[in-house]
Design a protein around this nucleic acid. Structure first.
Lengths: 130, 130
DNA sequence: CGACTGTGCTTCGGAATTCGAAGCACTCAT
DNA sequence: ATGAGTGCTTCGAATTCCGAAGCACAGTCG
C-alpha cells in the first residue's frame, strides 16, 4: 500500500538499523532499475516517457516510484522544462559508478576465456525472458 | 519456480537484450542483498550462517540464491575450509564499489545541512520499519 | 473548432521476487 | 549420547514489480 520509504543516511533502512550512510546507499542502489536510471539520466536530461523507453520499457509505476525516491534522496530533480536530470550530487553518484563500468568490462573479458564450471551449469540453459 | 538466471555479460538480462556487460552488471548488482554480500565478503571470508548474520539476518533462501549467482558469475567461491570468499575478480568488483562508499559519505553530509524540500515531505513521516 | 498525438502520471490485478520459520543431514565438542 | 553449530532446502505468506489501461493536459494540424 504505502510505497517503500526512501533510504536516507542517518536512519534505519531495509536490512540495517544502524543508519550508516553506506547501508542506506546499498539499499537505494539495490532496488531494481535505480542504477540504470542514474546511468541513463547521467547521459542527458530526459522526460518521463523517454526515460522509460531508454530503460527498455520498464514499468511506469516503478519508474515513478524510483524517480520520487531519487528526488527525495536529492540525486535527481526536475528542470524547468519538465525534464528530469541528476543533481550535482547525482552526477557524483554516477561518476562513483564509473569504476563499476570498467569492472564490468574486465568481468566480460575474464568470463570470455574461462572454462565453464559445474556451478554455472547449475543455472538453467534458458534464454531468460526474450 | 526456477531461480532467476544469473546475469552474465554477453547475453540478454532482465531489462536489456543487448548483452552489454554493463547491463548485466547493473542487473546483477541491482538485486537485493547482492551489493551487501559483496561488501561483507570483502572484509573477510565467512561461512553461510555467519554471513547471513552479518547481513542483518537476511533470509537464507535468498542468501543461497545470491551466493549461487555470485559463484556462477565468478565473483565468489568456496574455500577448502568451506567458507565463502571473493575471487580476485570479486575483489576488483568490491574495489570498484569504493567510490560509492565515499560518495555515500558526501551524500550523508549534504543531506545533513540541506533544508527539506516539498518532494521529501511527500515521503511519509513514518520511521520505516522500526 | 475538433481530431490527433504526445506527455506525465495513476490505478490495479496478476506475476515475480523476497521473506522467514521450520526442518534435515552432518560435524564436532562435551 | 546429548547438545550446539553448520550448510542448505522447503514452502506459504508478504512484498515488490510488471504492464496494460486510462486520465488530464498540452501542442499541432487541418
Amino acid at each position: 500500500m504505502n510505497p517503500l520509504p526512501t533510504p536516507m543516511p542517518g536512519r534505519p533502512v531495509r536490512g540495517s538499523t544502524t543508519g550508516r550512510s553506506l547501508m542506506a546507499a546499498l539499499d537505494l542502489f539495490g532496488r531494481r532499475w535505480t542504477l540504470r536510471i542514474i546511468w541513463e539520466l547521467g547521459n542527458e536530461p530526459l522526460g518521463f516517457r523517454l526515460l522509460q523507453r531508454r530503460c527498455d520499457g520498464m514499468s511506469s509505476s516503478v519508474l515513478r516510484q524510483r524517480l520520487t525516491e531519487l528526488q527525495e534522496a536529492r540525486l535527481a530533480e526536475v528542470l524547468r522544462d519538465g525534464n528530469y536530470t541528476l543533481t550535482p550530487l547525482g552526477h557524483d553518484a554516477r561518476e562513483a559508478l564509473g569504476p563499476v563500468i570498467e569492472w564490468s568490462r574486465r568481468w566480460a573479458a575474464e568470463l570470455a576465456d574461462a572454462p565453464p564450471t559445474a556451478a554455472e551449469d547449475a543455472g538453467d540453459g534458458q534464454c531468460h525472458r526474450l
